[in-house]
Design a protein around this nucleic acid. Sequence first.
DNA 1: ACCGGTTGTAAGCGTCTGCTTACAAAAGTA
DNA 2: TACTTTTGTAAGCAGACGCTTACAACCGGT
Lengths: 196, 196
Amino acid sequence: MTAYRTARKRDAAATRQALVQAAAGLFAERGYERTTVREIAARAGVNQALLFRYFGSKQSLFEEVVAGESLRHLRETPPESVLETALRGLLAAGTDEQGQRHRALEIFLRSAVGGTATKTGALLSEEYADALAMLTDAEDAALRADLVLAWLLGIGLTRSVVGRGALAGADPDEVCALVLDCARTMLEKLPQNGGR
Amino acid sequence: MTAYRTARKRDAAATRQALVQAAAGLFAERGYERTTVREIAARAGVNQALLFRYFGSKQSLFEEVVAGESLRHLRETPPESVLETALRGLLAAGTDEQGQRHRALEIFLRSAVGGTATKTGALLSEEYADALAMLTDAEDAALRADLVLAWLLGIGLTRSVVGRGALAGADPDEVCALVLDCARTMLEKLPQNGGR
DNA sequence: ACCGGTTGTAAGCGTCTGCTTACAAAAGTA
DNA sequence: TACTTTTGTAAGCAGACGCTTACAACCGGT
């Protein structure tokens, strides 16, 4: 390494984006705290001092990742598909069979536990809960939505962290069927499973 | 501090136990990675070098905490009460209204995400899943049990980490009613809610 | 009284972390 | 060309981390 490479291409925008993308991937894989700025810079193929020039701090970069990539995806999804889309995104974690999927909850659950990234994460989870709460007319809609969202997070946690047991190796379609069926007792406007 | 204190009482067993108890509390509050050996020693009122004399490493101490305190509690609980007991233990997290409650899942969910403590945590979650799987005769019992366990973890995650939203401030009885009702569609042998 | 093993203490080692600084090379402008 | 500004690089700082070491105080047995 560092053999030839007299100089980089001098493209600030490209460097910024490379950092954001590398960070998004690493935050999803390892979480906020376990990802180091040196790793991010290395994956982006960039000197780590640039991370601080462009984003100021690791925390600010995290916020940009969540606000940019994650919230955009969510807002483009209609409420009644949020559950299934998020669930399938979570079930596909690790296997990058889809180029661009809902990585938001993955990033959140891997990062939130630490505590540093909580403020940004809380905002994200609130948006998900709000979307889910539109699927019921019950007066405790907010609580029901939170419970369903909690289920999503728990499934992601069990899958990607424990990585063992029946859930880890289960067929996504089967999991979807069970979960959606069960969730319909809490959110009555949830559509039938599309099959897919 | 450190004013008089010529010497400690020289009681190895008490020191060990003080370390285990302090560690259990801190692991439940902050998780494995965010808890430092210096904090554990400080809360135990003990020199941090003793942690290494008695346990060898932070990881070994963690294993002793999980194997000792947590698994014992679980094994003393009949399968049909595991869900409600664990759920209520999780809902009581933070508020130490009960002196000794099911802290196991709390420790697990706060520690597992990091990754280091995964091996020990996986064993713990397997025991929970096995207990829950006894509550259904469906052929996908293991998957159903994992999904319910995932829900528990997700609820604990949302409650203790996000700390905002409807779930965080909800009445434990209300949450129990909703969750147990819904879980009964997956685990048919689950008893009716005891009211309590 | 003395000695060997146990328990507690103070200091620090090596490494990793987020972040900063000083500087060199490229691009824009005249 | 000469200059300023922008982009990239190398080196390192201060603090925290898990863990180790050298040593002092206490204890029981002889």
